[in-house]
Design a protein around this nucleic acid. Structure first.
Lengths: 199, 199
DNA sequence: TCTTTTTTTGATCGGCCATTCAAGATAAGA
DNA sequence: TCTTATCTTGAATGGCCGATCAAAAAAAGA
């Protein structure tokens, strides 16, 4: 009994991701959200509770997809380090100027810089997400170390931090008005840096 | 003749930089600006024209200071590469968690990620500023190359891009809830990477 | 002191902000 | 077909947004 919901939650979150990714949290008004998701305020608030709630769900879904994409990418490689190095190159291609993504910069980092100054659930959430990504990178590097792909004595937690900061730098740099070639070279240089840690 | 202005333009812009740096463009309301600068709307709009105008001037001043600080730092070094490497370490210390800056992340990058999605004067300005910083880095690296500090055949423009993206990554990473030690290690690792390009 | 010029003040503007809610629409069970 | 439960709609909410402006205040020259 009861009316069936017309909207598709996943599709709605997809639209929300695209909007927030492009315009950021403060830059996206409820009116724009209503239009992007083709939902009226009543449905929106019944479904997601608030603008914050919607953003939070969108950010989580975005992060989960990013994480899954990296894992899926690494599965194709015998060598973890080769996979990692190619992942940097792949990011440089995927988020180069001219590609049709809502933003070249990462939504997580955009959120970090936009709202982590205040004590808020969103601020804690974005820190938690970045922690888990760094942890995922560390696990992969430790696996590589266990396989003897890394120089003896390599501090994997520390290298994971460097790697995350490289990715942040790469994608933020890509947000500039620059060329695909320059971003690709940046990805190449970062891959070479990572290769320098190999045994 | 005519009443003397009470406000100090430089002091007002200082306050504006601190506010915008912490809360971003959208996150800073005119009411907060009035309070931070201790100026009433009439004076504000007579002096800076608009919120955009104020932000634009604050961003330019912030950028000029950053640029001057880097130049001043490099002057203390015989070796340009040593100066550059220490500059990365210095950034890691200056913008580590616990230091009292309004934000650990760079205002220029925060602005890039917040508003460069739209066609706007501010978007063009932030791109222009980043161009000039990269250009400044390139000049320093070419000077280093001319002195024989760099490996033969080093592409200084390309290395300047890598360096800028490292700085972006370092300071954005520092915005996370992390420790001063971790950021310092990150700076150390980046200095080591740069040292890898030495002859 | 009076006039002229500039700055400062604070009320005020229309508009958009996130959010609420009552009324209408639509489904399944009785 | 009627009831009940759920979802959708769109107008309305109070409040804050960036911006304007007339009036008051303050300086310098006459």
């Amino acid at each position: 009994m009861g009316r069936i919901a017309q909207y598709d939650r996943q599709a709605a979150l997809d639209s929300a991701i695209n909007l927030f990714w492009e315009k950021g949290y403060s830059g996206s008004s409820m009116k724009q959200i209503e239009q992007a998701l083709d939902m009226r305020p009543g449905s929106l608030y019944a479904t997601f509770g608030s603008k914050d709630g919607l953003f939070s769900e969108a950010l989580d879904l975005y992060s989960e997809r990013n994480s899954n994409e990296m894992s899926a990418h690494l599965e194709n490689y015998e060598s973890i380090m080769s996979g990692m190095e190619d992942y940097l190159r792949k990011l440089a291609l995927a988020f180069a100027p001219g590609t049709g993504t809502p933003s070249r910069a990462c939504l997580i980092v955009k959120t970090l810089l936009e709202i982590s100054h205040r004590e808020s659930d969103l601020g804690r959430q974005v820190n938690r997400i970045l922690d888990s990504i760094e942890e995922r990178l560390r696990e992969a590097l430790e696996q590589a170390a266990a396989r003897g792909e890394l120089k003896r004595g390599t501090d994997c937690a520390r290298l994971a931090r460097l790697l995350q900061s490289q990715i942040i730098g790469l994608r933020s740099y890509a947000q500039r008005e620059t060329s695909a070639l320059q971003v690709a070279q940046l990805g190449e240089d970062m891959a070479a840096i990572l290769a320098g840690y190999r045994s």
